[in-house]
Computed example of a mutant assay.
Amino acid sequence: MDLKGKRVVVTGGSSGIGLALARAMLARGARVAIVGRRKVELDRAVAELKMLGANIVAVAADITRGPDRQRVLACAEAKFDGVDILVNNAGAVRAGRLETIAESEIRAMVEVNLLAPILLTREALPHLRKCGHGLIVNVTSAAALTGVPFYGTYAATKAGLARFGEALRRELKGEGMHVLTVYPVATDTPMMATSRAGEDLGFGRESAIDVAAAIVEGIQADSLEVVRGGDARAKLIGLNRENPLALDERFFAIKAELEAATREHKAL
């Protein structure tokens, strides 16, 4: 898909991968609406992007709320006369032992990472159908492919979003729409600020700019998925498929250190 002139909605667009992706798409001639809960951050992002002469608009909204989802789509219709691409990027995380995580935090992850994208996609489908070449981009996580200790609920929601996208792609086949699923590894974003898991534990971080560039490349190539992490991640995914107990042992060897490094990881 050529991004020039495309009308794009990016949730979680005020920082991190969402902001980097908005910037990359704008550079290729797209028109972008970024969505986020915090107006101050949105205003800062829009001011930065407008300095580039970009066709950008911001919508302060909580996509877990029905009226806010409708307002996001109404804004895109009003500003751009439609939607060509929906990027479900907003995310929430709370790491730690399952029994230490509050029910409210578990529900927040399910709401933001899984239920809201499903409902927003459902509401966006009539808009995407009108353009005749609609695209849905679901930003999941490497944890959707290999479960990581102390990220059980997060992994479940991201795996759920991945399978949702796969099923929807098949449902929409032949109807002028496509679904792209993205699996980033740990990325240097505000969402990761409270995690102390680093390269020594296998959690090296790549830049949001690199992830955004890979997503744009996937969009332009009409790819089915974008999996980050290179050969090392591919080997880990293969090991998890072929010999999951070996991966269990690998995580067991760093279990205490990983728990200590992730117990304060929270972005809800």
Rank of each mutant, 00 (worst) to 15 (best):
E259Y: 14
R169C: 12
A143R: 01
A246F: 00
D2E: 09
I136E: 03
K130H: 10
E217W: 06
K39V: 10
P149L: 05
L145G: 00
G18R: 05
A144C: 03
N240K: 00
E77V: 10
A214F: 06
E123R: 13
N88L: 03
A27T: 13
L86Y: 12
V112N: 00
R250S: 03
L135I: 12
G66C: 10
A253H: 01
P67H: 09
K50Y: 02
K39H: 14
D2S: 10
A60M: 13
G53F: 15
P67V: 11
L26Q: 00
G132F: 07
A47I: 02
R97L: 12
A27K: 15
L128G: 10
I85N: 07
E199F: 02
I209Y: 08
T140N: 07
A193G: 05
K50W: 00
T181S: 11
R263V: 04
R241K: 12
E123W: 15
F203Q: 05
R169G: 15
V139I: 15
A256V: 00
A22S: 13
A54T: 09
A45S: 11
L73I: 09
A167Q: 11
T146A: 05
V211G: 04
P126I: 12
E257Q: 15
A186S: 14
H265M: 14
A162H: 11
T140K: 04
A212K: 03
I136P: 00
E41D: 13
R169P: 09
M191S: 02
I237S: 00
L73P: 09
I136T: 07
N89F: 07
Q220M: 11
R94C: 10
L49N: 11
F251V: 15
V93D: 02
L115C: 02
A234Q: 10
I219D: 01
A267H: 14
E103C: 08
E264G: 11
R38H: 10
T187S: 08
R129G: 12
L3C: 14
E103Q: 10
R233F: 15
S15W: 08
L161I: 06
R97W: 05
R94I: 11
I215L: 02
A159W: 10
L52D: 12
F251T: 15
A234R: 15
V10D: 06
N88Y: 03
N88T: 06
A102L: 02
L3G: 13
G36S: 15
L119G: 04
T121S: 13
A30G: 12
L245G: 01
G132M: 11
A186F: 04
L135Q: 11
F251A: 13
R65G: 01
L26D: 02
K4D: 12
R65F: 02
V137E: 04
V179D: 05
L119Q: 12
V112Q: 03
G204M: 08
A124I: 13
G198V: 07
A92P: 01
E199T: 06
A92Y: 01
A214S: 13
A24V: 05
T153L: 08
S223V: 03
G176N: 06
E105A: 14
R129T: 14
V139M: 08
M109H: 00
G5I: 13
Y154M: 04
V59I: 14
V40A: 12
E105G: 04
L26G: 01
I209T: 09
L86A: 12
L236T: 10
E77N: 11
G12T: 09
D200M: 10
R94M: 07
L135H: 07
E99N: 03
R263S: 01
I209K: 13
V226H: 01
